[in-house]
Amino acid sequence: MPVPLSILDLAPLVSGGDVADALRRTLDLARRAEQFGYHRYWVAEHHFTPGVASSQPALLLGQIAAVTDHIRLGSGAVQTGFQTGLSIVEQFGLLDALYPGRFDLGLGRSGQAKKEAQRLIAEEKPQEERVVDGLLIPKPFSWAPIFASQRTALAGSFLTQPGAEPLGLNEVLDQISALLAGPVVDDEGNEVTATPGAGADLEVWLLGSSGGESARTAGARGLPFAANYHVAPAKVLEAAEAYRESFVPSATRSRPHLMVSADVLVAEDDATAHRLAGPFAVWVHSIRTGLGAVPFPSIEEAAAFEWTDERHALVADRVATQFVGSPQTVAEKLRTLQRVTGADELLVTTIAHDHTDRVRSYELLAKEWSP
């Protein structure tokens, strides 16, 4: 039997559309995903990104829960550096109170101190492109120029309170765990309870793009972990290995549970799929230049984009690791990804300018994956 297949949605804007249009498309896609048999439907958290409407996962998940019946819903991922543990627990506790037992609380480290991020980048070892048992592992992309940009500094000034320093990942997880178990009692007997939140039936996940702290912490705490092949394909095997090597059984997991993400686009045949995927490179280019994802361009707009060798190099790893083609072609590539990483689940994300093409991509893949 194939491993479960789930969806990650950014609520992307497209050229000529607006935020309301993007959110309506997300609600429609979530309903269709449930009908198609997908296991989970996760939404991202991105800020100051012109082409992405998914900035507040809990708010968006509440809307999705209202139009679906049973598909698991989750965040991929709440950025712990921009919120307190209490605010996260209260948001997802409210969701669980209204729609019990359906939510995954996916957490990420975005918002970590810039100084630490720059240190981690400086410590990265050079890595050449290679193929591992049929899976392309490209050269890593360096985010250093974007971290150092004035735009990043401006965005950061709005994302945290003046002088605030984000808690470490373990500290945030300790807070979330204590509040979910609640009440929290100090040494003098004082008591606080997250309402809503205490006792919520949430499945806590960590997401990560390398073999760093998120992967190791997920393993050490016995949590499920999602590794990002679609964001950082060069690091996916490192992330999977670090997670498994660190794993310690917990009350909820006796063995590691790994989900791996991938960019996909499916159409009736390979040629059609590649035509529909044409704008993807332009969209990735906007991300890699530090401007934030632009509204997804049309095929005609993408064809007019002027490419240089430098621009091609900037997006080469993401374009080469997008799985594009007929249902058979993409399913085979996903089977390779699952086999090489040992993933227990796969998380796919698809963007197309036309909503009908996007929905059709998910439908074709679901039928091919679990006929």
Rank of each mutant, 00 (worst) to 15 (best):
G292S: 04
F280A: 13
G222P: 13
D187S: 12
S55V: 14
D18E: 13
Y229G: 05
G163M: 04
T350P: 04
H46Q: 09
F36K: 06
G278C: 15
G111L: 08
S75P: 06
V185I: 09
D263A: 14
L169A: 03
P233M: 07
V319D: 09
A239V: 00
P196D: 08
G17F: 13
Q127R: 15
S286N: 00
T350N: 01
L207N: 00
G342Q: 10
E165F: 08
A277P: 04
S326A: 08
A331P: 05
V184R: 05
Q338A: 12
I351K: 07
A122P: 03
L276Q: 02
A164K: 03
V324G: 00
V236S: 12
Y38W: 08
A200M: 14
I146T: 15
R119Y: 10
P256Y: 12
S149L: 08
I64P: 01
E332T: 08
S361A: 13
V340F: 01
A178R: 09
I351Y: 05
V264P: 07
E368C: 11
S15M: 09
D96A: 04
R32P: 02
V89D: 06
P183I: 11
T195G: 09
P100N: 00
Q79M: 03
R31V: 14
A65R: 03
R311T: 13
L364N: 02
G74T: 05
R288L: 14
V14C: 10
L314P: 08
D187P: 12
A30H: 04
G222V: 13
A271K: 06
G219H: 02
A113S: 10
G212C: 10
W143H: 15
V78P: 01
T272D: 00
E34L: 06
L206T: 00
S370Y: 08
D187Q: 11
A122F: 14
A240T: 06
T152S: 15
A293D: 05
E213R: 00
R32F: 07
P140N: 11
D174F: 07
L120Y: 00
D269T: 00
H230P: 02
P196W: 02
F48G: 01
Y41V: 03
G182T: 03
D309G: 01
T252A: 14
L364G: 00
P256G: 03
F305W: 15
W42K: 03
L347F: 13
A262K: 05
E165S: 04
P196F: 07
A240E: 07
V330N: 02
L120Q: 10
A352L: 09
G16P: 07
E245L: 12
H70C: 00
G101C: 06
Y243I: 15
R358P: 08
S54N: 14
